[in-house]
Design a binder for these strands. Sequence first.
RNA 1: AGGGGUAUGGCCAAGUUGGUAAGGCACAAGAUUUUGAUUCUUGCAUGCGUAGGUUCGAGUCCUGCUACCCCUGCCA
Length: 557
Amino acid sequence: MENTEKKTNFITNAIDHDIANKVYKNDRVHTRFPPEPNGYLHIGHAKASLLNYRIAQEYNGKFNLRFDDTNPIKEDMEYVKSIKEDLTWLGIDWEDRLFFASSYFEKMADYAVELIKKGLAFVDDLTADEMREYRGNLNEPGKESPYRSRNIQENLDLFLQMKAGKLPEGSRVLRAKIDMTSPNMNMRDPTIYRILHTKHHATDAEWFIFPMYDYAHPIEDAIEGITHSLCTLEFEDHRPFYDWVLSNLDNFQEEAPRQIEFAKLNLTNTIVGKRYLKQLVDEQIVDGWDDPRLATLSGLRRRGYTPEAIQAFCEAIGTAKTNSTVDIAMLEHFIRDDLKFKAPRLMVVLDPLKITITNYPEEQIEWVDLPLNQEDPEIGEYSTPFSREIFVERSDFLETPPKKFYRLFPGNEVRLRGAYFVTCNEVIKDADGKIIELKCTYDPATRSGSGFAERKVKGTIHWVDANLSKKVEIHLYDHLIVDDDGLTKDNFLDRINPNSLKIIEAYAEPEVMKAKAFDKFQFIRNGFFSVDSKYSTLEAPVFNQIVSLKSSWKPGK
RNA sequence: AGGGGUAUGGCCAAGUUGGUAAGGCACAAGAUUUUGAUUCUUGCAUGCGUAGGUUCGAGUCCUGCUACCCCUGCCA
């Protein structure tokens, strides 16, 4: 099953084209992932970082991790740490190429001086409000700032004063001198430096001016020798300025990086986007950035997702320029697909109904052997206790079953997985009519593995010993957003599913108690579960439901 | 005097120089099954936003429409 076809997309096509035209020496390809350290990474960042990383791998190129830390007001070292952890977990290796935009601040300031000397940048005294007025709007051209004609020497003096911290915050900016009548708003003399008297988290030197993204990014890319600078669609309009910066700086006349834009990832039934994620965290609607309901990488990890599943998902969704929303069922498919062979399969009863096996000797306990995963004998076996009193899933019994119901009902015989056939004889109810117990009989001849073949049974159900099973806490999840028809950035808080988390107490066979944080299991017929890293202890385990199992059972079909 | 993008089945998405619509998810049917899971088999676009045109032949070329997304931070 070898897939010799490499997955192509418009970006690999562009790179192939550049290689064919010898745009970069030695067919080199160099990409980068440039997160701003102002929040945690989410599944959309997984798509972007993996895209850059994979392309570097496929073309025998290099990949850099670069923190785009040009705004000290929003950024923090806490995020640098989490981002590195998440990327490492995802399987991304930047080797020794970890960079910070802030380490290029001195060079960037020098390049700004170069632009000033070339008459391509000027210091503007307009206030932010005035600048907005002068900018014009989508339908009307802007007006040139009265300070635009300042002479080069004055611009230089002023810029150096800004840099030295001698001018108050917000009092002036450095702007590129391009064209106030451009239909592209980004070319109407964009700001390239602002004065900020905020301590930067990563620089030793004291800085009072900070470069804007549009100015800094092309320089960062060029300094690092990036060939293909991949970013999201909203930066398409910024590309002319990206190219303007590089084409006007003497150092970057050869092998300038090329910006290529692709569509962001959107997922149904959830919200992706740092700003919205932050809101959910800040307003404590969720339990932190790593809440298992969030599509953050730390949340997915805590939930029990594996890097392999996320990698496979990101490859499957492809890369294009079409705005799209991927069905979350696709993500769920890939975690099932990854875990089905490698996760041990154990029995846990989520909603217990007691069964007394009336013809089974009192006090007797026998241990039955089961494979940890019958698809892969290598994973091994374990034993589980069986006795006169067991729990089965309440939903596996129906007093009046619909057609084709293969589970328990009065008079019906089913297999207890790994143990015996049992037949339901009697239903015990409490005063309110609620079923509280079933009386069954078992057939000793039907023990699993005995080779019994006289009768067949349609259904096999899971169970645990009533006395030897352990109580465990289980967190069941539903999609964070159930109905995303008409979902917008403004109404998403109203769409949060109030039942996205349900905490229940379940009964687990003893083997389950060996689990450690992040261990993953299939709880037979119930889904995949992972040990919660935040609340679980050895004495009181807590499991997160990663995803349910698929089911084609529909009553009445 | 607006500009920049995108339109291929329910959801993603391939479609090199025009040659007769990959694949995945979802869904449906059947087989196997000590998980109604897995696995296996089968089905699922006379049509590529729309109307014309060029051509022996158009998702691919041309023209005109339409819909949706992005842009008026001293955010990234």
